[in-house]
């Protein structure tokens, strides 16, 4: 197997007495979609925030493209982006203005061309000049996805990108993401509470519980290992297990 694009080793984050992420290690390879599964508070978002350099780990290392995030933040983040249902963008700017600001922050070449291209790909032409505060939740999700993809990242972190969206939009976003990922050879870390979506999107899944990795493998491997009917049953079984003392 090729060298991993993302290499996480013994990553731990403590907030006082509470351990949000407890000594986890994993790799993401080029072109791979790694699913990060777990109940609320399992440490998924904290892990993504550490990978984005927004939270400093208590211990452990994060390497991307062979570089240490702690020492090469700018070089790494230039090639990384993220999207989440829970993030926002400046409300008083139009969709196009927001994308232009992001393009400048990431030093995107041919800015106008890239903005036009992503607007076309994500079918956002009708909302190009609309103020961000007037977007529906589905349109907002498309905007945050557009801002993440426009910079042509090599690694993408998607934190519940389809939460609270209607099935039609979810289906469109998933289809777009899969095609884009295939064409661009993008590596993705994907979190979701939707088991079917997770099975459909991910090449491999990591199950986090109480900040620890409790299961790892393909969806089929995990289902078989826990002798359950599907991933949802595995989720319920693992999520309801009390924390080992």
């Amino acid at each position: 197997m090729s060298n991993p694009i993302v290499q996480v080793r013994n990553l731990t984050k403590r907030f006082g007495d509470f351990t949000a992420v407890d000594n986890i290690s994993f790799d993401i390879h080029k072109g791979e979609i790694l699913g990060l599964l777990g109940p609320n508070g399992a440490g998924k978002t904290t892990t993504i925030h550490m990978l984005l350099g927004l939270i400093t780990p208590s211990s452990g290392t994060i390497h991307m493209f062979g570089l240490d995030l702690a020492q090469h933040r700018e070089t790494i983040l230039q090639q990384v982006n993220f999207s989440s249902t829970y993030i926002s963008m400046p409300f008083s700017l139009t969709v196009e203005e927001n994308l232009k600001v992001v393009a400048r922050l990431y030093s995107v070449k041919n800015m106008q061309q890239q903005v036009d291209s992503i607007i076309e790909k994500l079918e956002m032409e009708d909302i190009r000049t609309r103020l961000t505060r007037k977007l529906s939740s589905g349109q907002m999700s498309r905007l945050t996805l557009a801002k993440a993809l426009m910079t042509e990242p090599k690694v993408l972190f998607l934190d519940e990108p389809t939460a609270s969206l209607d099935p039609d939009i979810v289906d469109k976003i998933k289809a777009f993401l899969k095609e884009y990922q295939r064409n661009a050879g993008l590596s993705i870390l994907y979190t979701s509470h939707n088991m079917r979506e997770m099975e459909e999107m991910s090449n491999r899944i990591i199950f986090l519980q109480h900040g620890q990795i409790v299961a790892e493998g393909t969806a089929d491997q995990i289902v078989q290992r826990y002798a359950q009917r599907d991933l949802e049953e595995v989720f319920l079984k693992l999520a309801r297990e009390p924390k080992a003392q």
């Binding site: 984005l52 350099g53 927004l54 933040r73 700018e74 070089t75 983040l77 230039q78 990384v80 982006n81 993220f82 993030i87 926002s88 963008m89 400046p90 409300f91 008083s92 992001v102 922050l105 990431y106 030093s107 801002k147």
Partner: peptide, 11 residues
């Protein structure tokens, strides 16, 4: 505008 994450997760 909850934009700090976008800024500081960028380069």
């Amino acid at each position: 505008s909850r934009n700090l994450m976008n800024l500081f997760a960028s380069p």
